[in-house]
Design a protein around this nucleic acid. Structure first.
Lengths: 122, 122
DNA sequence: CGCATTGTTAGTCATTTGGCTAACAATACC
DNA sequence: GGTATTGTTAGCCAAATGACTAACAATGCG
Protein backbone atom coordinates (compact mmCIF):
# COMPACT_ATOMS: atom_id res chain seq x y z
CA UNK A 1 0.00 0.00 0.00
CA UNK A 2 1.16 3.51 -0.72
CA UNK A 3 -0.33 5.27 2.28
CA UNK A 4 1.50 3.34 4.94
CA UNK A 5 2.48 5.41 7.96
CA UNK A 6 4.79 2.69 9.20
CA UNK A 7 6.88 2.94 6.05
CA UNK A 8 7.01 6.71 6.49
CA UNK A 9 8.50 6.25 9.93
CA UNK A 10 10.93 3.50 8.96
CA UNK A 11 12.31 5.32 5.93
CA UNK A 12 12.51 8.61 7.81
CA UNK A 13 14.36 6.82 10.61
CA UNK A 14 16.96 5.62 8.10
CA UNK A 15 17.29 9.02 6.46
CA UNK A 16 19.64 10.48 9.08
CA UNK A 17 23.32 9.51 9.31
CA UNK A 18 23.32 9.53 13.11
CA UNK A 19 20.39 7.14 13.22
CA UNK A 20 21.93 4.87 10.60
CA UNK A 21 25.12 4.93 12.65
CA UNK A 22 23.16 3.81 15.71
CA UNK A 23 21.57 0.97 13.75
CA UNK A 24 24.96 -0.12 12.45
CA UNK A 25 26.50 -0.08 15.90
CA UNK A 26 23.58 -2.02 17.32
CA UNK A 27 24.37 -4.73 14.82
CA UNK A 28 27.42 -5.49 16.94
CA UNK A 29 25.46 -5.58 20.16
CA UNK A 30 23.26 -3.59 22.49
CA UNK A 31 24.39 -0.36 24.10
CA UNK A 32 23.27 2.35 26.50
CA UNK A 33 22.19 5.89 25.69
CA UNK A 34 25.50 7.20 26.97
CA UNK A 35 27.43 4.81 24.75
CA UNK A 36 25.33 5.87 21.77
CA UNK A 37 26.16 9.47 22.57
CA UNK A 38 29.90 8.85 22.93
CA UNK A 39 31.37 9.23 19.45
CA UNK A 40 28.30 10.81 17.87
CA UNK A 41 29.35 14.44 18.01
CA UNK A 42 26.00 15.62 19.36
CA UNK A 43 24.51 16.13 22.80
CA UNK A 44 22.77 13.49 24.86
CA UNK A 45 19.31 15.05 24.51
CA UNK A 46 19.80 14.97 20.76
CA UNK A 47 20.63 11.27 20.86
CA UNK A 48 17.64 10.75 23.11
CA UNK A 49 15.43 12.19 20.37
CA UNK A 50 17.05 10.06 17.68
CA UNK A 51 16.46 6.98 19.79
CA UNK A 52 12.83 7.95 20.19
CA UNK A 53 12.51 8.23 16.41
CA UNK A 54 14.07 4.80 15.95
CA UNK A 55 11.85 3.37 18.65
CA UNK A 56 8.65 4.75 17.15
CA UNK A 57 9.73 3.36 13.80
CA UNK A 58 9.99 -0.06 15.43
CA UNK A 59 13.67 -0.31 14.62
CA UNK A 60 14.96 -0.59 18.19
CA UNK A 61 13.77 -1.78 21.56
CA UNK A 62 14.59 -0.29 24.93
CA UNK A 63 14.98 -2.25 28.15
CA UNK A 64 15.11 0.00 31.19
CA UNK A 65 17.52 -1.49 33.65
CA UNK A 66 17.80 0.59 36.76
CA UNK A 67 18.87 4.02 35.64
CA UNK A 68 20.44 2.86 32.40
CA UNK A 69 18.53 2.05 29.22
CA UNK A 70 19.77 -0.90 27.22
CA UNK A 71 19.08 -0.31 23.54
CA UNK A 72 18.99 -3.17 21.10
CA UNK A 73 17.76 -3.81 17.59
CA UNK A 74 14.14 -4.78 17.20
CA UNK A 75 13.66 -8.33 15.98
CA UNK A 76 12.15 -7.30 12.66
CA UNK A 77 13.87 -3.95 12.31
CA UNK A 78 13.62 -2.47 8.82
CA UNK A 79 11.69 -5.47 7.53
CA UNK A 80 8.86 -3.33 6.19
CA UNK A 81 11.25 -1.00 4.37
CA UNK A 82 13.19 -3.87 2.88
CA UNK A 83 9.92 -5.56 1.97
CA UNK A 84 8.61 -2.54 0.14
CA UNK A 85 11.82 -2.03 -1.83
CA UNK A 86 11.96 -5.72 -2.67
CA UNK A 87 8.38 -5.61 -3.89
CA UNK A 88 9.22 -2.71 -6.16
CA UNK A 89 12.26 -4.48 -7.53
CA UNK A 90 10.19 -7.58 -8.16
CA UNK A 91 7.67 -5.55 -10.16
CA UNK A 92 10.44 -3.90 -12.15
CA UNK A 93 11.92 -7.29 -12.88
CA UNK A 94 8.61 -8.45 -14.26
CA UNK A 95 8.26 -5.29 -16.33
CA UNK A 96 11.75 -5.75 -17.73
CA UNK A 97 10.85 -9.34 -18.60
CA UNK A 98 7.84 -8.11 -20.53
CA UNK A 99 9.95 -5.54 -22.36
CA UNK A 100 12.61 -8.12 -23.03
CA UNK A 101 9.99 -10.48 -24.43
CA UNK A 102 8.64 -7.73 -26.64
CA UNK A 103 12.09 -6.84 -27.90
CA UNK A 104 12.83 -10.49 -28.60
CA UNK A 105 9.65 -10.73 -30.61
CA UNK A 106 10.60 -7.59 -32.52
CA UNK A 107 13.96 -9.08 -33.33
CA UNK A 108 12.29 -12.26 -34.51
CA UNK A 109 9.80 -10.34 -36.63
CA UNK A 110 12.56 -8.25 -38.17
CA UNK A 111 14.60 -11.30 -38.91
CA UNK A 112 11.58 -12.89 -40.60
CA UNK A 113 10.32 -9.84 -42.54
CA UNK A 114 13.50 -8.00 -43.49
CA UNK A 115 15.79 -10.89 -44.13
CA UNK A 116 13.63 -13.66 -45.55
CA UNK A 117 16.64 -15.43 -46.99
CA UNK A 118 17.95 -16.23 -43.55
CA UNK A 119 16.14 -19.27 -42.26
CA UNK A 120 15.18 -18.11 -38.77
CA UNK A 121 15.99 -16.11 -35.62
CA UNK A 122 19.19 -16.71 -33.70
CA UNK B 1 29.58 3.89 5.58
CA UNK B 2 27.44 5.78 8.04
CA UNK B 3 27.98 9.30 6.70
CA UNK B 4 26.62 8.75 3.23
CA UNK B 5 24.69 11.69 1.83
CA UNK B 6 23.30 9.56 -0.99
CA UNK B 7 21.60 7.27 1.49
CA UNK B 8 20.15 10.31 3.25
CA UNK B 9 18.55 11.39 -0.01
CA UNK B 10 17.30 7.95 -1.02
CA UNK B 11 15.72 7.14 2.33
CA UNK B 12 14.23 10.61 2.63
CA UNK B 13 12.79 10.21 -0.88
CA UNK B 14 11.05 7.01 0.20
CA UNK B 15 9.76 8.55 3.43
CA UNK B 16 6.77 10.32 1.87
CA UNK B 17 3.65 8.48 0.72
CA UNK B 18 3.21 10.63 -2.39
CA UNK B 19 6.76 9.89 -3.49
CA UNK B 20 6.37 6.17 -2.80
CA UNK B 21 3.15 6.31 -4.80
CA UNK B 22 5.02 7.83 -7.72
CA UNK B 23 7.68 5.14 -7.54
CA UNK B 24 5.03 2.45 -7.45
CA UNK B 25 3.21 3.88 -10.44
CA UNK B 26 6.45 4.22 -12.37
CA UNK B 27 6.89 0.50 -11.92
CA UNK B 28 4.08 0.09 -14.42
CA UNK B 29 5.60 2.50 -16.90
CA UNK B 30 6.71 6.05 -17.46
CA UNK B 31 4.41 9.02 -17.10
CA UNK B 32 4.27 12.78 -17.42
CA UNK B 33 4.16 15.35 -14.62
CA UNK B 34 0.49 15.93 -15.32
CA UNK B 35 -0.27 12.23 -15.05
CA UNK B 36 1.65 12.07 -11.79
CA UNK B 37 -0.43 14.95 -10.50
CA UNK B 38 -3.74 13.41 -11.56
CA UNK B 39 -4.86 11.22 -8.65
CA UNK B 40 -2.37 12.57 -6.14
CA UNK B 41 -4.59 15.02 -4.32
CA UNK B 42 -2.03 17.81 -4.38
CA UNK B 43 -1.18 20.63 -6.78
CA UNK B 44 1.13 20.39 -9.75
CA UNK B 45 3.86 22.56 -8.19
CA UNK B 46 3.82 20.22 -5.22
CA UNK B 47 4.31 17.20 -7.47
CA UNK B 48 7.03 19.10 -9.26
CA UNK B 49 8.88 19.40 -5.95
CA UNK B 50 8.40 15.73 -5.13
CA UNK B 51 9.77 14.80 -8.54
CA UNK B 52 12.79 16.99 -7.91
CA UNK B 53 13.40 15.18 -4.62
CA UNK B 54 13.16 11.80 -6.35
CA UNK B 55 15.43 13.01 -9.12
CA UNK B 56 18.12 14.29 -6.75
CA UNK B 57 17.95 10.99 -4.91
CA UNK B 58 18.70 9.24 -8.20
CA UNK B 59 15.41 7.36 -8.09
CA UNK B 60 13.92 8.72 -11.30
CA UNK B 61 15.08 10.11 -14.62
CA UNK B 62 13.45 12.86 -16.63
CA UNK B 63 13.42 13.05 -20.41
CA UNK B 64 12.22 16.43 -21.64
CA UNK B 65 10.20 15.86 -24.77
CA UNK B 66 8.95 19.10 -26.20
CA UNK B 67 6.87 20.69 -23.47
CA UNK B 68 6.15 17.45 -21.65
CA UNK B 69 8.52 15.70 -19.26
CA UNK B 70 8.58 11.93 -19.44
CA UNK B 71 9.40 10.53 -16.01
CA UNK B 72 10.73 7.04 -15.60
CA UNK B 73 12.46 5.00 -12.96
CA UNK B 74 16.21 5.27 -12.78
CA UNK B 75 17.98 2.07 -13.73
CA UNK B 76 19.42 1.49 -10.27
CA UNK B 77 16.71 3.24 -8.30
CA UNK B 78 16.82 2.47 -4.58
CA UNK B 79 19.77 0.13 -4.99
CA UNK B 80 21.85 1.95 -2.39
CA UNK B 81 19.03 1.88 0.15
CA UNK B 82 18.33 -1.80 -0.45
CA UNK B 83 22.05 -2.47 -0.30
CA UNK B 84 22.46 -0.77 3.04
CA UNK B 85 19.50 -2.59 4.58
CA UNK B 86 20.69 -5.90 3.16
CA UNK B 87 24.14 -5.30 4.61
CA UNK B 88 22.62 -4.68 8.01
CA UNK B 89 20.50 -7.82 7.82
CA UNK B 90 23.55 -9.79 6.78
CA UNK B 91 25.44 -8.58 9.84
CA UNK B 92 22.52 -9.38 12.11
CA UNK B 93 22.29 -12.85 10.62
CA UNK B 94 25.91 -13.42 11.44
CA UNK B 95 25.43 -12.12 14.96
CA UNK B 96 22.41 -14.35 15.46
CA UNK B 97 24.45 -17.30 14.21
CA UNK B 98 27.09 -16.55 16.83
CA UNK B 99 24.44 -16.30 19.52
CA UNK B 100 22.76 -19.44 18.29
CA UNK B 101 26.07 -21.26 18.37
CA UNK B 102 26.66 -20.05 21.89
CA UNK B 103 23.21 -21.14 23.02
CA UNK B 104 23.65 -24.52 21.39
CA UNK B 105 26.90 -24.96 23.26
CA UNK B 106 25.19 -23.96 26.50
CA UNK B 107 22.49 -26.54 25.88
CA UNK B 108 25.10 -29.16 25.20
CA UNK B 109 27.05 -28.22 28.34
CA UNK B 110 23.93 -28.31 30.49
CA UNK B 111 22.92 -31.65 29.07
CA UNK B 112 26.36 -33.02 29.89
CA UNK B 113 26.79 -31.44 33.36
CA UNK B 114 23.31 -31.40 34.87
CA UNK B 115 21.85 -34.59 33.51
CA UNK B 116 24.69 -37.04 33.26
CA UNK B 117 22.27 -39.99 33.30
CA UNK B 118 20.63 -38.93 30.07
CA UNK B 119 22.74 -40.10 27.22
CA UNK B 120 22.70 -36.96 25.05
CA UNK B 121 20.84 -33.92 23.79
CA UNK B 122 17.53 -34.31 22.01
C1' DC C 1 21.26 11.20 53.85
C1' DG C 2 23.96 13.57 50.35
C1' DC C 3 25.86 13.40 46.01
C1' DA C 4 27.05 11.48 41.46
C1' DT C 5 25.36 9.31 37.35
C1' DT C 6 22.01 8.35 33.71
C1' DG C 7 18.65 9.80 30.88
C1' DT C 8 14.44 12.65 29.79
C1' DT C 9 11.79 16.97 29.48
C1' DA C 10 11.19 21.85 28.60
C1' DG C 11 12.19 25.72 26.06
C1' DT C 12 14.58 28.20 22.46
C1' DC C 13 16.20 28.73 17.79
C1' DA C 14 17.41 28.11 12.76
C1' DT C 15 16.48 25.28 8.92
C1' DT C 16 13.86 22.22 6.13
C1' DT C 17 9.61 20.31 4.44
C1' DG C 18 5.33 20.34 2.20
C1' DG C 19 1.55 22.64 0.82
C1' DC C 20 -0.81 26.66 -1.67
C1' DT C 21 -1.57 30.56 -5.30
C1' DA C 22 0.15 33.52 -8.79
C1' DA C 23 3.20 34.43 -12.26
C1' DC C 24 6.40 32.95 -15.68
C1' DA C 25 8.70 30.13 -19.67
C1' DA C 26 8.46 27.20 -23.30
C1' DT C 27 6.27 24.47 -26.59
C1' DA C 28 2.24 23.30 -29.60
C1' DC C 29 -1.57 24.49 -32.33
C1' DC C 30 -4.89 27.38 -34.96
C1' DG D 1 0.89 35.98 -34.31
C1' DG D 2 -2.18 34.75 -30.78
C1' DT D 3 -3.77 31.36 -27.59
C1' DA D 4 -3.80 26.95 -25.10
C1' DT D 5 -1.12 23.52 -22.76
C1' DT D 6 2.68 21.81 -19.85
C1' DG D 7 5.61 22.45 -16.33
C1' DT D 8 8.71 25.37 -13.30
C1' DT D 9 9.74 29.35 -10.33
C1' DA D 10 8.70 32.68 -6.78
C1' DG D 11 6.76 33.82 -2.63
C1' DC D 12 4.13 32.78 1.30
C1' DC D 13 2.90 30.06 5.38
C1' DA D 14 2.43 26.33 8.97
C1' DA D 15 4.46 22.44 10.79
C1' DA D 16 8.24 19.36 11.56
C1' DT D 17 13.32 18.51 12.29
C1' DG D 18 17.51 18.75 14.60
C1' DA D 19 20.45 21.04 17.44
C1' DC D 20 21.55 23.42 21.97
C1' DT D 21 21.31 24.62 27.23
C1' DA D 22 19.13 24.28 31.58
C1' DA D 23 16.39 21.95 34.58
C1' DC D 24 14.32 17.78 36.24
C1' DA D 25 13.61 12.66 37.70
C1' DA D 26 15.28 8.52 39.07
C1' DT D 27 18.64 5.33 40.44
C1' DG D 28 23.04 3.97 42.65
C1' DC D 29 26.58 4.60 45.96
C1' DG D 30 29.56 6.62 49.67
Amino acid sequence: MTNNAGLDLTFAACAHPIRRGIIERLGVGEMTVGEATAGSGVSKPSISKHLRVLEEAGAIVRVIDGRTHRIRLSEHALDDAQGWISDQHALWERKLDVIEGYLAEQRARRARDDLPTEEGPV
